[in-house]
Design a binder for these strands. Structure first.
Length: 491
RNA sequence: GGUCGGUUGGCCGAGUGGUCAGGCAACGGUCUGCAAAACCGUCUACGGCGGUUCGAAUCCGCCACCGACCUCCA
C-alpha cells in the first residue's frame, strides 16, 4: 500500500506522513469560538479533520486528537472596542458569560454528533487553562520576546524576526508587513504595529477576566493554542489543522510563540482546509451570510429550498477536496443527497448478494484505488468516485450481469464497511432509532403492498396501481422485484 | 496596494503533457402489465491571447475576472 501523503502548508508541498513517535500521532485543530450557533462553515474543518482522525486510526495509529473550545478574550470588531465578545452577548441576553459558553458548546457538540463527527480525544477550553496561558506568557517575557505595558503583554515581533523567521507559514515578508501597517499604527501602546497581544489588560466593566502577574486581564487570542497544544501534545507534535482563514495571523503567531518558548518549530505538518462560500463569498459570522447547521437540518432559512440531512452535508463536503473552495447551492446539495442515497443503497445491497463461483470483477484493484485516493492528501472526491465504480459493480451483480466469488464478496463488504462508514463517516439515517410508531407504519405498508401483490397476481391492475400511486403520493418509493417488492419512505 | 490561491461540460466537482474522473440533471435503450429502481448508451468541457512541444485543459508568459488573508477581533 502507498504511503499517506499530506500537503504541508509550511513547505507548500505534499509530504509523506511520518509521525514523530512511531505508531502515535498528536493532532491539534482550532475549534470554535462559542458565542453563536455553529454554521455550515464550522462543519468543514470539523469534518475534514474528523476524516483524518478516523483514517489515522484505521491505519492503526494511536491518535491523540485535541480540538479546543475558545471561550475567552475575544474582542468585538465593530462597536464597543475592548469589550469581550462573550461578555457582550451576555449582557444582551442577560445571562452569565459562562452560561453562553455552555449553551453554544452544547449546541456545537450536538451538531457535530449529528454530522457523525467523532468527539476529539481532548476538548480543552481556554477558560480552563488560564494558568497554563499565564505561564506561557511569562515564558515569553523571560525569553525576551514579549514585553509588558500598562498591564498588557505583547509579543515583540521585530525582536523575534531578528533571531528567527517570522512569516514562513503564510509566506509574508516582514518588510511587506511593515509597509502595509504603517497607517494603522497610530493609537497603539505597542512598540510596533506588528506586535500582537499575548495578555490583555481588562477594563473595569469587562466581565471575563482573571488575575495575573500583570493585573486583571485575559489571554491574547493566539496564546491559548500554544499553551494547550503544548500541555497535551508536547513542544513538538505532528499535525496542526484549521481553516485557511486562520493561517495568518493566528497560526503564524503560534509558530512564533512556540519558537520563542522552545527554540524550535512546534508543528511538523500544518494543514488548512479551504472555506465554504455562499455566492462565491466566504461564509462567516462577521459577514452575516451564514446558514446555521440547525437551519440546514430543518430547512428553516430563506436560502434553503428544503431541509438537508446532516450526512448529506457531510457527503457534500467530502465530495470536494478539503483544500478547494466549496460553494453552497441548493442544486449541489440536492445532487449530493441523491448520490449519497445511491451509495448507501448499494452498500446495503452487498449483504443480499449471493456469491458465485467466479468473479468477473477485480476487487483487489478496487481496494488499491481506494487507498491510493485517500493516501493522496485525503482525496475524498476521487475516493468517492471509485466508490461509485464499485456501486456499479454491486448493482450489476445484483442484476445478474456480473458475478463475485465468496472471497471477493467478503473483501468487498469489509472494504465498503471500512470506507463508507468507518473512514468517511457516512451512515444510513433512516435506519437509526426506529420508534414503535415507525415499526407499525412499516408493517402497515407491507400489508398494503402484499395486497397489491395479490391484485397483481389477479391482473387487477386498477387496484394494484391505486395502492402504489396512493403510497407514492404519500411520499413512498415503491420498487417491484422478483421476490415481490421493496419500499422506502422518501423526504 | 501587498501576499497567496482559483477560473473545467446544464449544475457540483476531480485530474493528467497524448488514452473514462465521479455525482446530479437531460435524452435514448434494456427490464417491467405500466411504473420505480437497476443496467447499457448519448451529451466530450477545461477564462482570453501568445509561447514551448510531434502533441497542452495540463508547462511558460501576459491579460481579464473571482476569492482568502493583510497583525483589534474571528
Amino acid at each position: 500500500m502507498s504511503d499517506l501523503i499530506i500537503y504541508n502548508t509550511l513547505s507548500r508541498k505534499k509530504e509523506i506522513f511520518k509521525p514523530l513517535n512511531p505508531g502515535h500521532v498528536g493532532m491539534y485543530v482550532c475549534g470554535p469560538t462559542v458565542y453563536g450557533e455553529a454554521h455550515l462553515g464550522h462543519s468543514r474543518p470539523a469534518i475534514t479533520f474528523d476524516l483524518l482522525f478516523r483514517y489515522l486510526k484505521h491505519l492503526g495509529y494511536k491518535v491523540r486528537y485535541v480540538r479546543n473550545i475558545t471561550d475567552v478574550g475575544h474582542l468585538v470588531n465593530d462597536a464597543d472596542e475592548g469589550e469581550d465578545k462573550i461578555a457582550k452577548k451576555a449582557k444582551v441576553e442577560e445571562l452569565e458569560p459562562m452560561e453562553i459558553v455552555q449553551l453554544y458548546t452544547n449546541s456545537y457538540r450536538r451538531n457535530m454528533g449529528q454530522l457523525n463527527v467523532l468527539p476529539p480525544s481532548i476538548e480543552p477550553s481556554a477558560s480552563g487553562h488560564i494558568i497554563e496561558q499565564i505561564e506561557a506568557v511569562q515564558q515569553l517575557i523571560d525569553s525576551g520576546f514579549a514585553y509588558e505595558i500598562n498591564g498588557s503583554v505583547y509579543f515583540d515581533v521585530e525582536k523575534f524576526a531578528s533571531v528567527h523567521t517570522y512569516g514562513k507559514l503564510s509566506g509574508r515578508k516582514i518588510e511587506d508587513l511593515y509597509s502595509n501597517t504603517r497607517d494603522l499604527d497610530a493609537q497603539s501602546e505597542k512598540r510596533s504595529g506588528l506586535d500582537f497581544a499575548v495578555w490583555k489588560n481588562a477594563a473595569a466593566e469587562h466581565l471575563m477576566k482573571w488575575p495575573s502577574p500583570w493585573g486583571e486581564g485575559f489571554p491574547g487570542w493566539h496564546i491559548e493554542c500554544t499553551a494547550m497544544s503544548t500541555k497535551y501534545l508536547g513542544e513538538s507534535f505532528d499535525i496542526h489543522g484549521g481553516g485557511l482563514d486562520l493561517l495568518f495571523p493566528h497560526h503564524e503567531a503560534e509558530i512564533a510563540q512556540g519558537m520563542a518558548c522552545y527554540g524550535h518549530d512546534p508543528v511538523h505538518y500544518w494543514m488548512h482546509n479551504n472555506l465554504i462560500t455562499i455566492n462565491g463569498q466566504k461564509m462567516g459570522k462577521s459577514l452575516g451570510n451564514f446558514i446555521t447547521l440547525d437551519e440546514l437540518f430543518t430547512g428553516s432559512h430563506a436560502l434553503l429550498e428544503k431541509a438537508y440531512s446532516p450526512i448529506t452535508i457531510r457527503f457534500f463536503i467530502l465530495q470536494a477536496h478539503y483544500r478547494s473552495p466549496l460553494d453552497f447551492s441548493n442544486d449541489a446539495l440536492q445532487a449530493a443527497e441523491k448520490g449519497l442515497e445511491r451509495l448507501l443503497k448499494a452498500v446495503a445491497l452487498l449483504d443480499k448478494l449471493i456469491p458465485a463461483s467466479v468473479s468477473t470483477v477485480n476487487v483487489p484493484e478496487l481496494s488499491d484505488k481506494f487507498y491510493a485516493a485517500i493516501n493522496d492528501d485525503l482525496n475524498t472526491p476521487v475516493l468517492i468516485a471509485h466508490l461509485f465504480d464499485g456501486v456499479k459493480l454491486i448493482n450489476s451483480a445484483n442484476d445478474g450481469k456480473a458475478t463475485i466469488n465468496e472471497g471477493d464478496l467478503t473483501l468487498l463488504k469489509r472494504l465498503y464497511h471500512d470506507f463508507t462508514f468507518d473512514i468517511l463517516g457516512f451512515r444510513s439515517e433512516s435506519a437509526e432509532g426506529v420508534s414503535d410508531h415507525e415499526a407499525i407504519l412499516g408493517d402497515v405498508v407491507d400489508l398494503l403492498l402484499n395486497l397489491r401483490v395479490e391484485a397483481k397476481n389477479n391482473k387487477d391492475w386498477g387496484t394494484s396501481d391505486k395502492i402504489r400511486n396512493s403510497l407514492i403520493d404519500l411520499g413512498f418509493e415503491i420498487r417491484d422485484n422478483k421476490e415481490g417488492f421493496s419500499w422506502e419512505l422518501k423526504k
